[in-house]
Amino acid sequence: MELILDHVSHSYGDVEVLSDISLSVGSGEIVCIVGPSGCGKSTLLRILGGLEKPDHGAALIAGEPPSDSLNPLTYVFQDFALLPWRTVEGNISLVLEDHSVRKDKARAIITDVLARTKLSEFANAWPRQLSGGMKQRVAIARALSVNPAVMLMDEPLSALDSQTRELLMDDLIELWGQVGFSACYITHNLAEAVRLGHRIVMLSRRPGKIREIVDIDIPLSERINHPAETSAIQRRLWEAMRDEARAADRELSDVA
C-alpha cells in the first residue's frame, strides 16, 4: 500500500500553511519530513491521516492495506497521548477493543508488542510511573498492536532528552528490521532524519513547499557505521535550511 499526497494546499484563514505539496510513502519505507518550525509539518501529517481536510488537493491511498491491518493509518504523538487511567496493557487494549479483538487474541497481540518494545515487565504499570522514553515506547507498542500500514509519527522523540532519544532511535531501527513498517516521520531534528529516513523531504518555511528531497541509500542498520556520509548529508541539509530557520525564528506568530 502506498500513501500519496497529491498537490495539497491548505490555509488557516488568511495564512497559507501548505502550498502544492506532493509526496508518497511507499511500503516499508520511512519518509522523514523536516523543516523549520511553523512550516506546516504537523498539518501535513493530520491531512495524511485524515484528521483534517486540505483546501486543495487530496490525500490518497493506492492499493489495499494488508487485510490484517486493524487501523491502516496510525499516529504516534509527540506527547504520547496515553490515558493516565489505564495501565500500559490497558492503553494498548483500548485500541483493540473497538476492533473487536478480545480476550486471548488481544492478549497475544499485547504480549507480542510489549516484547518487541521491551516493555513486558511493565504491563501493569501506570503511565505516571514511566519515564518519557518508556511512555513513548508504550505509544509505539500501541501503534504496532493495530498492525498499521503506515505509521504517522509526529515528532515522536522531541519531548525526550538526548540520551533517551538515542536509545529510542536504536530501538526503532531494530524494530524496523523486525517488522519493516512504513512511516511518515516528522521532525525538526536533522540527526534523527538522517538516522531513520530512507527519504528526507525538506519543507521551506511558511507556506510550506517542498524544497528538496534527499534519498539515502545506506541501510538503516548500517548508518551508525558510516558517520562521514550521514554527517555530510546532515550538514548539507542544515546549510540549506539555516537561513529559513533563522527567518522563521524571527517571525511573529499568529497561528499556533
Binding site: 496510525t74 499516529y75 473497538d98 493495530v146
Partner: peptide, 10 residues
C-alpha cells in the same frame, strides 16, 4: 489530544 488519539485509532 487524547480525544484526537482515540479518533486516530478509529
Amino acid at each position: 489530544n487524547l480525544i484526537r488519539m482515540g479518533q486516530s485509532f478509529g
